[in-house]
């Protein structure tokens, strides 16, 4: 098992960014992607040429100590199942998952429940794969309970223009990242109602995110930092956000099935809203926005009814308006 190579599971823009960052650090990349060729390099993009592709994700995990999972949350359980037998105690598993599984699990919970790996790092904050790949300049949060895991990642990947913030709040960073996608769906729904309403929804979403995070063992402060507010603001500016686009379509009155079909790719915010609402119920945590979004997706509410009901709750200053 090598420290001079990192593993990459998944392609996409984040995978591309990680490859560039690894190259800059002089680290080799061993990769697997559903769309990658079974061996050799593919000629459609330069970055792919530098990766030693493996036909089997477990082979990547066997070869590398630091392994980056660049796949969406809903694809994680299947991938973890496939590589679980190759997991080792000194592995550092990194993910940038911004969502929950359909069963309401965070990425680290999926990894912990099916493997022996303990050193898990969650990447959070306002970075985008494309931006990272293009300019290598961004700010991100690497959250782990293990300092040595972040150090291993740091040594394998990063370069001076990337600002890496360390955090020990793995849960907080994961929840903040996951719920921001769902909040973005609500943001899109409210687009026609103006920035005031949109901002109010963002604020309510942030509060819900913090509530859920704290109930799961995270720290409230994380949600007012780069991984919380920072990420939320960055997502708002992302014109290409599938989550926002889904919200826009729903806000325009498209039926959920048609809106989802038009986007033609899984929308993490939609999956996460329902999963978070259900997890919140189990924990006794009120998450009206998450619940509302999932009701819109089930056609139990229209977007305007949902927004109205969420904003009508606890309108005055009260405990629900504070961070948690």
């Amino acid at each position: 098992m090598s420290d001079r190579e990192i593993g990459l599971l998944g392609g996409g823009s984040l995978g591309q960014a990680l490859v560039r960052l690894a190259q800059d650090a002089g680290t080799g990349v061993v990769g697997w992607s559903r769309s990658a060729p079974s061996s050799g390099a593919r000629g459609d993009a330069d970055w792919r040429l530098t990766v030693a592709w493996e036909p089997d994700p477990a082979a990547v995990v066997e070869r590398c100590r630091v392994v980056c999972f660049a796949v969406p949350a809903h694809a994680l359980p299947e991938l973890i199942e496939a590589v679980g037998a190759a997991a080792r105690g000194d592995h550092v598993w990194v993910h940038a998952s911004k969502g929950m599984t359909a069963a309401g699990q965070l990425a680290h919970e999926v990894m912990r429940q099916r493997t022996c790996v303990k050193q898990i790092v969650a990447l959070g904050g306002p970075f985008s794969g494309l931006e990272l790949a293009r300019r290598g300049q961004s700010a991100l949060v690497a959250a782990s309970h293990f300092d040595c895991a972040v150090a291993a990642l740091d040594a394998a990947l990063f370069r001076p223009r990337l600002r890496l913030h360390r955090s020990d709040d793995l849960i907080g960073v994961e929840v903040a990242g996951a719920l921001r996608n769902a909040i973005s769906v609500a943001d899109g729904m409210a687009e026609k109602l103006g920035e005031g309403i949109q901002s109010a929804l963002l604020a309510r979403g942030l509060v819900e995110s913090a509530r859920l995070g704290v109930a799961l063992g995270g720290q409230a402060g994380t949600f007012v930092g780069i991984a919380g507010v920072g990420d939320l603001l960055a997502q708002r500016d992302a014109a290409s956000s599938r989550n926002f686009a889904l919200g826009q379509r729903l806000g325009r009155g498209e039926p959920p099935a048609a809106a989802l079909a038009a986007i033609a790719a899984p929308v993490e915010g939609a999956i996460t809203a329902a999963a978070a609402a259900s997890r919140g119920r189990a924990l006794g945590v009120a998450l009206p926005l998450m619940h509302g979004i999932s009701q819109v997706l089930e056609q139990a509410l229209t977007p305007s009814e949902m927004i109205e009901s969420v904003l009508a709750r606890d309108a005055g200053l009260g405990p629900s308006d504070s961070l948690v």
Binding site: G84, A85, A87, G89, D90, R114, C116, K118, C148
Partner: peptide, 24 residues
């Protein structure tokens, strides 16, 4: 491990391949 596979636990404390303490 949680699904019943045996674990080589010495790896949890391996640093550059050898067992070593790391307080954190």
């Amino acid at each position: 491990d949680p699904v019943g596979r045996p674990i080589e636990i010495a790896r949890y404390v391996a640093v550059d391949g050898a067992p070593a303490a790391d307080p954190q």
